[in-house]
Each structure stands twice: as structure tokens, then as C-alpha cells.
Design a binder for these strands. Sequence first.
DNA 1: GCTTATTGATTACACATGTAATCGGTAATG
DNA 2: CATTACCGATTACATGTGTAATCAATAAGC
Lengths: 126, 126
Amino acid sequence: MTDSNTHISEAESKVMEALWRTYPLSAEDITGSVGEEQNWRTGTVKTLLNRLLSKGAISAEKQGKKYLYSPVLARDEYLSTEGESVLNRLFGGSVSSLVSHFSKHEKLDQKDIAELKKLIGELGDD
Amino acid sequence: MTDSNTHISEAESKVMEALWRTYPLSAEDITGSVGEEQNWRTGTVKTLLNRLLSKGAISAEKQGKKYLYSPVLARDEYLSTEGESVLNRLFGGSVSSLVSHFSKHEKLDQKDIAELKKLIGELGDD
DNA sequence: GCTTATTGATTACACATGTAATCGGTAATG
DNA sequence: CATTACCGATTACATGTGTAATCAATAAGC
């Protein structure tokens, strides 16, 4: 058990990502975008939407004969929860230890480095 | 499905962590340390060890009537795989985007910041 | 040698997750 | 009005994961 109960699975997170980009979206919309990429039948998308609804991660409002879905859980909140959990599991909760790992393995490109420099600079200024 | 087949679950990773700290270890050793913390019965630890064996993540050698287990998968390799997968899922593969997120949410302590500064400094020198 | 304790192997079982198929109700169409 | 098409709800099912209990083989003790 990763979280108590309302954990969002990987497949579910794909649906969330779509809703975080734009909302509200119908099941059809999502099947057309995410479903296309993931090679999901419509039933699959419906199931994921229902599971997300049960978890309270999204909401639905009836619009004619179909539903329009919107995120309830904010992306930022999701990132915090998931990110922190992973950071703890893998890197003892230390961001610098994560960066160090990726750095050591040449996983930082120029853009990353530039961004990091900027970030760190700003932090110092605080 | 996160990975093709040999994905290491969270419970399994707890066992791996123990073996990465010291090895070889007997099932008893692991039950005594990790099992204690996690409140696992001996059977649970045995199951995890067997699953890790099937996945080729650890090896076992007979020592008298019991087995001694050692890691096969290196911690660093595990960190790379898992870390990259998570980084992709959550932050579009961008380390700086992850750091930015944690920074925005005040999740960087002084030590992190100091470490990051040092890291980035070294990177610039390359 | 027979009994008991140890330890690994096998089996179990509930819940999560990926991936749908099918059922059932309502709306559109002829 | 009867039929069809559309859409959400319900059911399904294999595999993964957490968490063991039990079985079986062997070693140790009486």
C-alpha cells in the first residue's frame, strides 16, 4: 500500500494530465486524446474516469446526455504528494541527493543546468 | 504496467535497501531489521526474498541450512531506473522542473540549497 | 532413531490496477 | 411509436502487490 486509499495510479494520472491541461472534458474528448496515445478503448477511459470520481480526484457535471469532467485535485498538490513520497523512498527525502544522482549520471542537459543555476541564484537572493 | 516485467515493488525495495547497506544477509537478519520496522512476519520476508530472487534482483547461496542473500541489482542502477521513470511521469523528465517545484513549496532546507550550489558550481566548471 | 525445531517452498487470499465487454437507459430518427 | 445509436454503469478478468499460513525437508536434541 503506497498511500492510505486514494492513490492515483499511472493510468489514472494520464487522464488527470489531460484534465489539467484543459477542462472540462467529456469522456469522448479524453478517449480521443489520451486514449489515442495509450491505445485505450472507450471502456477503459470510462473505467478510469469512474475510479477517479470515486477517489474524489475529479468531478462530473451533466451536460445534456453526457458528462463533463473537471479536476478536483490540483496538479500541484498531486506533484507534491507523489514527488515527496518518491523523494523519500529513493533519495532519503533530499532534493540535492537526487540532483547529485542525476548529475553523476550525466542526466542533466544544458537547459537543466542553466535553469538550476537561475533557481539557485534566486534562492540565494531571498 | 510500469516496467516490462522486473519491477521492484515498494515492499521489495525495503528488503533491497537492507541488502544494499550490508550483505550477505540471512532471511532471519532481514526479518530482524526491516521486518521489525515494517511489522512483517517471517513469511512475508521469505516471500519478498523469493520474488526478488525470481526477478534476479538478488542472489542466494546456501550456508549450512540457511541461505545468505546478496544484491545483484545495484542501488545506483535501481535509482536511475526508478528515478528517471518518476521524473518523466511527474516532471516531464526535467530535473530543474522538479527542483523548481520543491523550491516553490519551500521544501528545500539550507543544507539542500548549499549542496545544490556546490553541485551547480562544479557543473559549471566541467 | 524418534521427536522437535528451523527454514525454505508452496499455497492463499484480498485489494489494486490495467484493460476492457456488456448491460441498460435515454435520446435521436424514421 | 418502434428502432437504433450513444453513453454511462456494471461486471469481468488477468496480473501485481501486501501479507501471510501451512507444508515439507532437514538438522538438532533427547
